[in-house]
Design a protein around this nucleic acid. Structure first.
Length: 829
RNA sequence: GCCCGGGUGGCGGAAUGGCAGACGCAGAGGACUUAAAAUCCUCCGGGGAUUUUUCCUCAUGUGGGUUCGACUCCCACCCCGGGCACCA
């Protein structure tokens, strides 16, 4: 009697897998291809069960696909740049690289301990020059195409640190290190990638993802891109000859006759011009300053009170020539549309609130088609639905859709407006005033201005010994040997760009690099990528539903337009797994509720740990960590081990030939039937439904059956076949145990090369089935009949069933419903 | 406010319009043991009847509906979780 020793078994098989290089895969035209990928981790302090669950799911998929004959690529790497490393470096007076690489080592140790089937030859780390030089290369390509550009943009600035803060370093509007210091908004020149150039495609191509991506991720992306169609309308500014017109974006041009004012964003460039020389200027100066300073990003923005003031200027409604006061309002955003709106209080929620507060008129210009007509005096809330235009000059009487159409067309003809589509999506600001990121490869020369670093000079390396203080100017700017360089054009003195790139750049294309990780001539060989791509199954957290996935989709389209790839979307299928929680909240360092994956592996072994995360909940749902639950999996794993151990020696001798089914006993037939029925359901759970938890439940059930059958006279041929099936079904989840069992059953070759068992419908077929008999939909009896029995006969026997007869009691059958081999329902009166 | 999820025993969960509660956890009782652990066996939603057996009945957030039949589909509402939110 051997004892189950997970550590020894797991070490043994991991060693053999590595020696036989079973998880390495290369281009092979003879096999179907499967690319399964889990989102690459940021190597923080500890690999916890939340990470583990993600990789356990991916590994099941990878292993099942291998057993199904696919050429599987299953890589892993590190999202290694980022602020935490820099913070840790400051705190511990070390280098971000050391902290990062230590963490990577630790993560890797844990992943190896769990036996995940990665092709480690393909490992990448985004902080290595071999990787980030291609970020720079891509940046240059985008720069050439006008997809990368500089503009002034708002940043968070701590006056005490004298430095830029990342959003996550701003806590309730205060600096994270100076709780008493309010963060200021500052405008500085920064680099942007023109994601808006692809807004339409990013939206349209979501159609390609339908069915493959979760509906809600698609919805979130659609909302984020936020396309709205409407019109831009120019309002001339009255009494200000030479002043440009105010342009307004609206989706409801049909309500323009109800506009009572124009409202500008506080930061709108026209505000200062209008106030110059206006008697209002002095009165509102303080108010304006306040409005401009308050960050446009606070969460309570939507609920904050609307405030504004009259500028003293007037605009002219191009449709009816009416004079309209020009106001400034805090709820108007410069970033969206044109930074100016027309105020139609009767038909817009925000305008209604604003007009109510400042006593502006609320003329009604749309009436509902049915129901009570609106009345100016009694208007309690805005009417924002479509309806019929009223008091709208020649457009009165049209329904809203027609009015929008006609008024837009007229505005275009007359030259004061045009059809316009506006996106919520903004260009992607990639500048970070940080050290631990990819240097942006441009230099500034007094003579030649902005000069891109030539490809041959890439990578622009990070200086090895930066002064990291978290205070003052950006670390690269404070490193003279980095900043001072020669202009690639004229050879004269020049300064390097000192911003580094957002780490979302790193993760936007890493999965392409996996296909060709050591290429030093290009980001990747298009032929190799062409072979593996697209990703068949991408697996990760819902937290990345918007940014990472949107940027990746953008990058893909840019690469396609560069002629590097031919597809338009990187991942055909996306799966978002639920979080692992403890105490009802997601595991996180800040909450201090982490359960280390390594501790789990040490205590129960990798297989039990893997099994539990898959068993405890369906993969898309959140999972509450329970130490008790894992005990059950531990018991199960032991039970299977003992089961095979008890029979191993006897079964090893059984060679080849399966049991002749015709000669099989009832007990043997029943056992084989159970095994093949389990196989059918488990296969479906793995491949179609992704219900790993119920797959495991089925396997547990089969194990219980085998266990119960042991005492009966079951011949070794039958027992061996069932135990082999059991072993193979467990292999994707508890691979080390399965290998050991496979060996115990007398097999030489390693499991990763063994195919998924073949389902035999003959063996799975029931000879006799239990049929439920219902009277008026209520279960009144059950009976065993031969499978496939004709309806009439089933009904006849049902009526004879004693439980049924008791409920018939002279009643008449008016209808019968027969579900073959399952149920008969008799409707009686 | 808008958009998604979700609500089933003491707990995690199962049931793709056809036996609600599979499988596991926890709990109870028993076997083995000097004892414990481990293991094995039995029971395990509520109420009622019958008491060796079994039967009836209620029950999948609430209320309606569709259907021979609803955890499953439709409508309304309640609660929980998440996302978005002055987007003009």
């Amino acid at each position: 009697m051997a004892e189950y020793n997970p550590r020894a078994i797991e070490e043994k098989w991991q060693k053999r897998w590595a020696e036989a290089r079973v998880f390495e895969s290369d281009v092979d035209a003879s096999k179907p291809i499967y690319y399964v990928l889990e989102m690459l981790p940021y190597p923080s302090g500890m690999l916890h069960m939340g990470h583990m669950r993600n990789y356990a799911i991916g590994d099941v998929v990878a292993r099942v696909k291998r057993m199904r004959g696919f050429n599987v690529i299953h890589p892993m790497g590190w999202d290694a740049f980022g602020l935490p490393a820099e913070n840790a470096a400051i705190q511990n007076n070390t280098h971000p690289r050391i902290w990062t690489n230590n963490n990577i080592e630790e993560f890797k140790r844990v992943l190896r301990r769990f036996g995940f089937s990665y092709d480690w030859r393909r490992e990448i780390s985004t902080c290595e020059p071999e990787y980030y030089r291609w970020n720079q290369w891509f940046f240059l390509r985008m720069l050439e195409r006008g997809l990368a550009y500089r503009k002034k943009s708002r940043v968070n600035w701590c006056p005490k640190c004298q430095t830029v803060l990342a959003n996550e370093q701003v806590v309730n509007g205060m600096c994270w290190r100076h709780e008493d210091t309010a963060v200021e908004a500052r405008e500085i020149e920064q680099w942007f990638l023109r994601t808006t150039a692809y807004a339409e495609q990013l939206l349209d191509d979501l159609k390609l993802l339908e069915g493959g991506w979760p509906e809600r991720v698609i919805t979130m992306q659609r909302n984020w891109i936020g396309k709205s169609q409407g019109a831009k309308v120019k309002f001339a500014v009255a009494d200000a000859p030479g002043a440009e017109a105010i342009e307004v974006f609206t989706t409801r041009i049909d309500t323009i006759y109800g506009a009572c004012a124009l409202i500008l964003a506080p930061t709108h460039p026209l505000v200062d011009k209008l106030l110059k020389g206006s008697p209002e200027a002095a009165k509102v100066a303080t108010k304006l300053k306040q409005m401009r300073q308050s960050s446009a990003k606070t969460e309570d923005l939507a609920t904050a009170e609307k405030v504004g003031f009259f500028t003293g200027g007037y605009g002219k409604n191009p449709f009816n020539g009416e004079k309209m006061p020009i106001w400034v309002g805090n709820f108007v955003l410069l970033e969206y549309g044109t930074g100016a709106v027309m105020c139609v209080p009767a038909h817009d929620q925000r305008d209604f609130e604003f007009a109510t507060k400042y006593g502006l008129p609320k003329p009604i210009v749309v009436q509902p088609v049915s129901g009570e007509p609106l009345n100016d005096a009694s208007l309690k809330e805005p009417y924002t639905e479509y309806g019929r235009s009223v008091n709208s000059g020649p457009y009165s009487g049209l329904d809203s859709a027609a009015a929008i159409e006609k008024m837009t067309a007229d505005a275009e003809t007359k030259g004061f407006g045009k059809r316009e589509t506006v996106f919520r999506l903004k260009d992607w600001g990639i500048s970070r005033q940080r050290y631990w990121g990819t240097p942006i490869p441009v230099v500034y020369c007094a003579k030649d201005g902005l000069v891109p670093v030539p490809d041959k000079d890439l990578p622009v390396l990070l200086p090895p010994n930066p002064k990291l203080t978290g205070m003052g100017e950006s670390p690269l700017a404070a490193t003279p040997e980095f900043v001072n360089t020669k202009c690639p054009k004229c050879g004269g003195a020049a300064r390097r760009e000192t911003d580094t790139m957002d780490t979302f750049v790193d993760s936007s294309w890493y999965f392409y690099r996996y296909c060709d990780p050591h290429n030093d001539k290009a980001p990747y060989d298009s032929a190799k990528v062409g072979y593996w791509f697209p990703i068949d199954q991408y697996i990760g957290g819902i937290t990345h539903a918007i940014l990472h996935l949107l940027y990746s989709r953008f990058w893909c389209k840019v690469m396609r337009d560069l002629g590097m790839i031919t597809h338009s979307e990187p991942a055909a299928r996306l799966f978002t797994q639920g979080m692992v929680q403890k105490g009802g909240v997601a595991m996180s360092k800040s909450r201090g509720n982490l359960v280390g994956a390594m501790d789990m592996a040490e205590k129960y072994g990798a297989d039990t740990g893997r099994l539990y995360t898959l068993f405890a909940a369906p993969p898309e749902k959140d999972l509450e960590w329970s130490e008790q639950g894992i005990e059950g999996c531990w018991r199960f794993v032991n039970k299977v081990f003992r089961l095979v151990d008890r029979h191993g020696e006897r079964l090893r001798g059984v060679k080849g030939g399966k049991l002749d089914v015709a000669a099989a006993s009832e007990k043997e037939k029943a056992l084989l039937r159970e095994a093949h029925q389990t196989l059918r359901r488990v296969t479906n759970d793995f491949e179609t439904r992704w219900h790993f938890n119920s797959a495991i439940a089925q396997i547990m059930e089969l194990t219980n059956e085998v266990h119960a059958a042991e005492t009966h006279d079951v011949r070794p041929e039958a027992l061996k076949e069932v135990l082999e099936m059991l072993t193979l079904m467990l292999a994707p989840m508890t691979p080390h145990l399965a290998e050991e069992l496979w060996e115990m059953l007398g097999h030489g070759e390693g499991l990763p090369r063994v195919n998924w068992p073949k389902f035999n419908p003959e063996l799975a077929r029931e000879e006799e089935v239990e049929i439920v008999v219902q009277i008026n939909g209520r279960v009144r009896g059950r009976m065993r009949v031969p499978a496939g029995l004709a309806e009439e006969e089933v009904t006849r026997r049902a009526l004879q069933n004693p439980g049924v007869a008791a409920h018939m009691d002279g009643k008449r059958v008016v209808k019968r419903i027969v579900v073959p081999d399952k149920l008969v329902n008799l409707v009686v009166t």
